[in-house]
Design a protein around this nucleic acid. Sequence first.
DNA 1: ATGAAAGCGCTAACAG
DNA 2: CTGTTAGCGCTTTCAT
Lengths: 332, 332
Amino acid sequence: MTVNRLAEIAALAGVSPSTVSRALSRPELVAERTRRRIMNAVEATGFRQNEVARSLKQQTSRTIGLVVTDLNPFHATLVKGVQDTAERNDLNVILFTSDDSAAREREALSILRSHMPQGLILIPSAHTALHAQLLRGLTVVELDRQSGMDGAHTVQVNNRAGARDAVRHLIAQGHQRIGAIFGQLHVSTAQERHQGFRDALAEGGVAYDETLVRYGNDLEPSGRAAALELLDVSPGARPTALFVSNHEMAVGAIIAMRSLGLKLPRDISLTSFDDSRLMLLHEPPISVVAQPTYELGVRACEVLIAALADGDVPHHVRLDAPFIARGSVAPP
Amino acid sequence: MTVNRLAEIAALAGVSPSTVSRALSRPELVAERTRRRIMNAVEATGFRQNEVARSLKQQTSRTIGLVVTDLNPFHATLVKGVQDTAERNDLNVILFTSDDSAAREREALSILRSHMPQGLILIPSAHTALHAQLLRGLTVVELDRQSGMDGAHTVQVNNRAGARDAVRHLIAQGHQRIGAIFGQLHVSTAQERHQGFRDALAEGGVAYDETLVRYGNDLEPSGRAAALELLDVSPGARPTALFVSNHEMAVGAIIAMRSLGLKLPRDISLTSFDDSRLMLLHEPPISVVAQPTYELGVRACEVLIAALADGDVPHHVRLDAPFIARGSVAPP
DNA sequence: ATGAAAGCGCTAACAG
DNA sequence: CTGTTAGCGCTTTCAT
């Protein structure tokens, strides 16, 4: 026998529905004995409150939205961080992927609202600012990137410092012709990493040469194409090192290097963003700026929960992304 | 100005709420002119029906549950397949991870029910059968593995054939001492791959030697430990090839081989389950049984949707997982 | 073709 | 400490 209405429990325990509701949600308001009787009935029947009805009545659900731009391994780890933390706080996650498309993001946000979530964690696309209207009144935490929208909380890594450290290392090894591949500059991560790249160049007395810089879309094929453009030239014109500002594009760059028969680190050095087992097990292992990916997801969820409790003080979190030197970098 | 109640649209369009509801959900029941008036108001205000209220009234939500055992890159791809397909069918995904734990799975299913989902896609844990009660009345599709629960639809790959092809290839290359690492045999995938392993041995006239077989938990550390046990022995006692039946454990095996200074494929050959860029870019590239991971997620969602429409005919899908020979296998 | 009315399952004043 | 009552926003008979 299954019981799925609070009223049935009430009948079983011989009390009114409100008392059952209280026993479940605010047990301190119910007399010990009554409560015990109710809980017995609840356990015996396996009853659980209907979340949908609760949500409608309370005008908010124990749910948060999570919008990611894609679901590659990096995002999966982010999602896991959010998910684990949400679960610990009795929150459920409704997942959307925007594919960085304005239309899909818009739709996701619109649908999400109709589910009355407590709040929203999102990797903003380049178009998020356009959707400010859809976010009105929602507590939102921007994860990984920031859209510039005001009122939003943010949880990011120290992109600029990470990129700077990586490029500094290349320069310390003696590289002067350093190629670079970034995401689109209107995305904050690309912008910040680009800035870190320039910081390191300036600091090392190396001129910024825009002919050695390419911009992709954070997906592997674009990294491959960009790397081919930079590397498939006469050995003299070729950069001696490459800084790729995102994991997927770095994979593309590795593939490009192979197809050109370039050996790491003999023919070229490489430094990338985001650590992974691929980067670690590669021969040679790839030097990377290691984002604390899982932690990022955890913190985003924690910030959301804090913001929900605290009110509107915006929280901005920056985690460090340490550079890890490995065998993919050698003197030119 | 934001409108968030259907009644407000009704007022704006000068009709009753029922008519607005019909215009939105069953437009053919509303006169062209009225409908247009309503739709104008809807578009002007950006109104969207409250899903929570709809769900309560309709006693089901436009939502499906998705329970995965973990969120590694393999699962992420599965999730993406489900998610993309769900989105195309106006379904939202509530995501849970069970970590293969009975308690977490139980909790996930219980919570899920309270959200009145249309159905559920789940990677069953070893304990799913215990939770049959929680699944009563729900349309469920088991993905990747099967629990044996009756009534459930299943979407899996041809594990047995995949494993057999991989091991057949090892034998064809001349291997006789073949080590193997599987997941726990009470998980259907491990069971089936184990069977395929034995099929190939029998077919190749190689005796099954249980001292060369280990069982892990599908996570990387267990693969590493198992591989160390098998490989850290005198060269004569060592298997000449290893078949690892899951991606994470294969990564562990690769790490173990490195720590022992064993070179692939000179000192040992390796074949694994699940393709990935890591396997592809590894030197040498690893031979794998390539599961159509994304497709698996897509099909699971399609089966769910079909089952929801069709009624109770159980659907069982098996996709092929072709073996791809690469450089990690050489004659002993 | 449209409107009025009831009710999905729950919670939260308010009374007692 | 507990019960009564109203209502969250929507859909759906039923009536007109």
